[in-house]
Design a protein around this nucleic acid. Structure first.
Lengths: 337, 337
DNA sequence: TGCATTTACGAAAACGATTAAGTAGCGTGT
DNA sequence: ACACGCTACTTAATCGTTTTCGTAAATGCA
């Protein structure tokens, strides 16, 4: 329960706390054998440094703040982000960092993200936010705290981004190559990522010589089966129905899938569909959902590496924008026409 | 960037740091007007206390450790736990606490959960672990650090548990009341919760006078559509097929749903099914999945209240075991026979 | 041997807060 | 006028580290 302190070790070894500190930190001006025996007794006594004391003195906390915009559509419950966070956590843990959620308030006092980060003395911040135009996020970004963002680019800051433009293009081309010309697209709610995907969809279609009518493009929502179901019905009621519907993500597709079934359409015989993300769900479906697998694990890992290097070697650090390609998962929901 | 300290405020106000500290902490022995003006300048200067210094001195950190067993089946990517964590976070944040993940290692050094908690000076721990028999968890539990567990009971510790026994019973009775007598059950992997649900299933069946053959009970896995699909096929191949299949959770049911469809069975006409959890997915399905909605939001809130009171009022605190009932969601996947 | 240099350690200050103890100043009761 | 008790503040110690600087002993070199 009660923590062992440097002082206790010092007494046990008959040396000063300075010596103990040096021994444990492998400092240069200490005798090899003294150091060894101190380290041994420290281990025996179950010593761990007091994080607060160390943080106070050294001005770093070995703690990384996570800025997670928690809302329904994009938050912990979204498998893509949860997976990124998981692999990020595993990686920074190995580098010796803990993870703390950074919110806008602590108790009754409201603070900005920056203030919270300073309060907790975070060595770096990992931003997984939907709305990076939030002034409080901007304030953080323009501070000197090392940070890495996901799927959003701030100039001068490290970022890891899923290659949304190319991914979407890949998916559209796949559908096109299977012979589809009437492709509908249900987008997610309006975010930077959504805009990139939508632009890529249009660009790719134009490039392929496809003329997509306006009513084939429906604004939906990520992670919402209900809204995808509704959008699906609207597409069904169109006089000139699409032959393929592209859903905003795998999860929300489930709503569309059920709606189509209700309407008596079978997949992919009567209508083709695609998802996005490649979460575990998509492989549990029959036929396997055709989707674009984003490499969330790699994204988390790269973000961790980037942030750790930004923290630990600021001199050599270059705020890269790492683009992570996705993989097309062919599945079986796009029929060859 | 650089934080404002007490000292700076003290200089600005021409008082000692002690006075500033007292003013900000609403201590008694300080003049009302001095206090007021100090608080005002502190605000103007953008002061926030240094968490490390405060923690060092007061021996508490206003930080709660989360012990999250991160593995595939049960972790951040599981909506039930992610939701509990989300609502927990929102609640403790209001009480003035931050959340830090507690892992078994930090850098190259391996430490126990207890050691990590001491290292970070956590005021309390929130345990969301699948395997509470882990010796390192046990060590933590037997320490004096306030903690609350989810879906697992340690005597003398606060716990919030979803009422698995009654929930399962409710679900079985609902199926029974719809006329089903041949009920199959696909369980999750072996955990405390699984054992409770399985026992409740058996007990309820016995109570209802049902004799469930052994081959109706299949050991599956939570959150795994694939394994549920396979289990579904095994049940289908039985000479005497069940009329209803109960899946370990909503998510894994998706695998079964597709398998059944592949087998040419339609739900609920040819076969009835139930899920468990009541995640958003289940309401996106057509027909709506019959499931047992666990109140993950309330569980998170109650856990937060319990833990905060354990931390802040240890004298009046009673380590309750709060049982949160679930709600049957009738849905449309159980046919009336 | 004598002097300079290195090695190995200790003393003490510092990080930013909290808090017990001490002390002015002031009013009050007798 | 004097002791007493408040009130409102300051001083200084403290939490557990890290780190600079000082210094004694050991060593190197001529």
């Amino acid at each position: 329960m009660l923590a062992v302190t440097l002082k206790q070790i010092a007494e046990a070894c008959n040396v000063s706390t300075a010596t103990v500190s040096k021994a444990l930190n492998y400092a240069s001006d200490i005798g090899a054998d003294t150091a060894k025996s101190i380290r041994q007794t420290a281990k025996n006594m179950g010593y761990f440094p007091n994080a607060a004391a160390r943080s106070l003195k050294t001005n770093h906390s070995r703690n990384i703040g996570i800025l997670f915009s928690l809302n329904k559509a994009i938050g912990l419950t979204h498998e893509y982000f949860a997976q990124i966070l998981e692999s990020f956590q595993l990686k920074v843990e190995k580098a010796g960092y803990d993870l703390t959620f950074i919110s806008r308030n602590i108790g009754k006092t409201v603070m900005s993200y920056l203030e919270h980060s300073i309060y907790r003395n975070c060595d770096g911040i990992f931003i997984l936010s939907k709305d990076c135009s939030d002034p409080s996020v901007l304030e953080l970004v323009s501070s000197k705290i090392p940070l890495v963002t996901i799927d959003y680019v701030f100039e001068g800051c490290g970022a890891v981004i899923s290659d949304n433009a190319n991914n979407m293009s890949k998916l559209v081309r796949f559908v096109y190559n299977r012979g589809h010309r009437k492709i509908a697209f249900i987008s997610g709610e309006d975010t930077a990522v959504t805009r990139i995907r939508l632009a890529s969809f249009h660009k790719t279609c134009t490039h392929l010589g496809l003329n997509i009518p306006d009513n084939y493009i429906i604004k939906g929502q990520y992670h919402s089966p209900e809204i995808s179901a509704e959008a699906t019905r609207r597409l069904y009621e169109l006089p000139d129905r699409p032959t393929c519907i592209m859903y905003p993500d795998d999860y929300s597709y489930i709503g569309g899938m059920n709606e189509l079934e209700d309407l008596g359409l079978s997949i992919p015989e009567d209508i083709s569909v695609t998802g996005f993300d490649g979460i575990s769900l998509s492989k549990g479906l029959r036929p396997n959902l055709t989707t674009l697998r984003q490499d969330s694990e790699l994204i988390g890992i790269k973000a961790a590496q980037l942030l750790v290097s930004a923290i630990e070697s600021p001199s050599t650090y270059i705020p890269e924008h790492i683009v992570i390609p996705g993989n097309l998962w062919e599945g079986g929901t796009v029929k060859r026409l």
